[in-house]
């Protein structure tokens, strides 16, 4: 198996979490200023979508940068 050439799964996870974070964050910020979704959940006032989206963006960035395959990290798959 060409182990050294495999992009780390942690990098892929980071990319996916980042994309999820951006989508969730943007959708909820938009919903805050221009309510469009029509959903009113319990604890709606806490705006969980905004801070959870931001959390996913941060986690995604940390993983993507730490396991960036172009940095030639030792952690392969």
């Amino acid at each position: 198996m060409e182990e050294k050439e495999i992009i780390s799964i942690w990098f892929i996870i980071g990319c996916l979490l980042f994309l999820f974070g951006v989508i969730i964050f943007a959708a909820n910020v938009l919903d805050y200023y221009v309510p469009w979704s029509g959903t009113v959940t319990v604890l709606h006032e806490y705006r969980a979508g905004i801070w959870w989206g931001a959390f996913l963006i941060v986690i995604g960035l940390v993983y993507s940068i730490a396991f960036n395959p172009w940095k030639k990290t030792k952690e392969a798959a």
Binding site: N28, D31, T41, V42, A48, G49, W52
Partner: peptide, 12 residues
């Protein structure tokens, strides 16, 4: 889920 999760979070 329906009680707490809004747009995007429900998909997650």
């Amino acid at each position: 889920m329906a009680r707490y999760l809004g747009p995007g979070l429900l998909g997650l």
